[in-house]
Each structure stands twice: as structure tokens, then as C-alpha cells.
Computed example of a mutant assay.
Amino acid sequence: MKLKLKPLAQQVIVITGASSGIGLVTARMAARQGAKVVLAARNAEALRELADEIRAQGGQALAVPTDVGSEEEMMRLAAAAVAEFGTFDTWVNNAGVSIFGYCDEVSIPDMKRMFDTVYWGAVYGSRLAVAHYKQRGEAGALINIGSFFGDRATPVQSTYCSAKHALHGWTDALRMELEMEKAPVSVTLVHPGRIDTPYNEHAQSYYEHQVAHRGMVYPPESVAEAVLFAAEHPKRDMFVGFQAKALAVVGHVAPRFMDKLMEALIPPTQIDPKRPSKNPETSALYEAGYGLQEHGSHEGWFRSGSYYVKAQKRPWLAALALAGVGGAAWLLARPRS
């Protein structure tokens, strides 16, 4: 069944994790393009200021303070969107938080709390969105923000990888079930690479030094571009940054090569040795993080955008790029004589 989604300017979009980073940028971009936005996060003050900012610019916005790890609060979020605007057309499960620490040192309570946000929050949101679209009988979009680390595990962020792997599996299974019953729901999984947001500042860290991206970093606007394209055009997957797609493909074809590469590169490129680590009590794992900041404090090669996102809007370009990645992966994986 071919689904037809509304133009963005006619949509109501629910965005979790809207107080900073990807969610904040997506909300601002969606509002500028005429969408009505429903803003969800734990930071009530940041949401209120963002809603006021959007209204002052002529847009329509509703702020709904929400802990996505609570099913009851997510139900209230969906009900508030319907009460204010009569419906919603796209639901974006974006809220997330990470933990930096090795498998044997991260506490079990920290692990469970992070799964509440990264995995269970997306499950609650997915079920609410699907139920709404089925009830109204009109096509809508569900967009889950995954991660390259949901395609390929990494040292240092074991809990985050595990939660994103679970989210990817949930999204794929849900998509297939909905296709089988011909439900009016477009399900998209977004796979960001390293993105310049306050992700590291909000993370719970077991490290002595501040965690930070050190390498190729993409702007949050590229993720927002992918999200808003998927809100209007049914897409199975959107990869943000060619690095995300390339490393996922190579990791699948040549897993031992990728093991060794990540063991060598990930730990040193996740730490800024010049800055002491923030107090774990200031992280956003249990309490709301600071809001209204789109970018973080990273070091590296800051890209102005993602050509691969733009290529995915034109499938033949993405196919050419993927063919090149596949060829390189085959060369890496083939037996040496």
C-alpha cells in the first residue's frame, strides 16, 4: 500500500527531546516551514521559552513537559496534542541520553534508567502514534531516532549501544507488522553518525575527563533535514552522514576488521583529555539537562551538512554511493593470498 503523507505545512508534529540538540533544531525548522509543533521534554522552562519563541515568529506550538520513560506521561502528551490541535500527523521519538563507561563498571540502576528513556520511551511513543493513525484512518508518520551505534556496537558506550540495538529491532519488527496488516503508518528509522549536540554534556560519565566527539562531526540540522523529509515522504531508513552508512556496511561485511578499528579509534576520540569530567550528578540521566542549546563542545572536523542525506532524497544517488561502499567492504573482507 502506497502511503501519502501531508505536506509539512499542514502537519501537527510531536517531538520528544525537544528542549535541546536534534529535537530543538527539528522543532525550530518544522515551525519555520509551517508545521504546528508539540514540544516534549523534562525541562519545562526550556519548553515554555521555545514555545514562546515559535509563537513570536508566527508559528503554533504547544509545550508539554514529559518524562518519556513514564508511559502515563506519554499518554498525557498524546492526549494534549489531540486536545490542542485535534490530531497529530508525525510523531518523532527523539529523546535520549547516553552513559560513558565500560560494561563492568556502569551500575545496573543507571542502565535501567537509560533504557527507560532511549528504548521504553520510544516504545510508548510508537504504540501511541500507531493507535492514533489507525483510529483516524489517515496516514501518519512515525520517526524513531536510532544511531550508528544501533547498527554497530562500540566500546565505552555499551549501555547506549544496547538500547539503540533494541530500538532498531523494535522499529523493524513494528514496520513489518504494520505492512502485513496494511496499516496507514509510515515507519522511518533515522541513523545519525556523530552529531554536534549537547549529547556528551548531558551524558552520565564514569570517566575522569570530559567526554566529547573528536573527529568528523555533523550538524544537528542534517538530522532535522532527514526527519522532516521522512515526515512528508515514506522512507524505511535515513542515514545522517556517509560515515554512518559506510561503517554500518563495513561492520556487517568485515566485522573483525571493524572490531579492531573501533577498539583503536573510539576510546581516544570520545575523550577530551584537557577538560575534567563534569560531576555525574549534573548529567541528564535522572534529571532534566540544561535546555535551548543546539550544539555541544566538541573537537574535530565540523561538517556544514550531510551530502548523504541529500542523496537519499534522490535514491539513484544513494544507490551509487552505497555501491562504492560495498566495493570497498568487499576488498577489505576478501581472503588474502
Rank of each mutant, 00 (worst) to 15 (best):
V37H: 10
A51S: 10
Y207F: 05
S107H: 04
A51V: 04
M176T: 12
R236E: 15
G101D: 10
K134Q: 13
G289W: 08
V118D: 15
S98E: 13
R42S: 10
G215C: 07
P184N: 12
V14D: 06
N94V: 02
A41G: 06
V223I: 08
Y102W: 09
F229M: 03
E138V: 10
K235V: 03
L8Y: 02
Y286K: 12
V123Y: 13
G289M: 11
S205L: 00
T87S: 14
A31Q: 10
E294P: 02
R48H: 07
Q243A: 06
R136F: 00
M114N: 07
L8A: 03
P315C: 03
A78W: 05
P280Q: 11
V123R: 09
H132F: 00
A139V: 11
S158E: 11
L331F: 00
E201S: 05
F257E: 07
A95L: 12
R32Q: 14
K310Q: 11
G291H: 03
T154Y: 07
G86D: 12
V227T: 07
K6T: 03
L261F: 12
K245L: 15
P219S: 02
V156H: 01
W120A: 03
P335T: 13
D237E: 14
E71V: 13
S337K: 15
H298A: 06
V130F: 03
G125I: 03
H165K: 08
V123S: 00
V211C: 14
V187I: 11
G326H: 09
G324N: 02
M114I: 06
A226K: 01
A248H: 06
I15V: 13
S19F: 10
E221M: 12
A27D: 05
L320N: 06
M180H: 10
A40T: 13
A153H: 02
E179R: 11
R136C: 08
A139G: 09
S205M: 12
S147V: 08
Y290R: 14
D116E: 13
P7R: 14
D237H: 12
K274Q: 11
A173K: 00
D104C: 08
W301C: 02
S297Q: 02
L142D: 10
L322E: 15
A173G: 10
L142H: 01
K310H: 09
A183G: 00
A311I: 06
E287D: 14
R236C: 00
V25S: 09
V92W: 01
A35Y: 06
E45R: 11
F85H: 12
S297L: 10
F115Y: 15
A246W: 03
P155D: 00
A153Y: 01
R334V: 06
V185G: 03
E225N: 02
A9C: 01
H233K: 15
R152N: 11
L128Y: 04
P276R: 13
G150P: 08
H132C: 12
V253H: 08
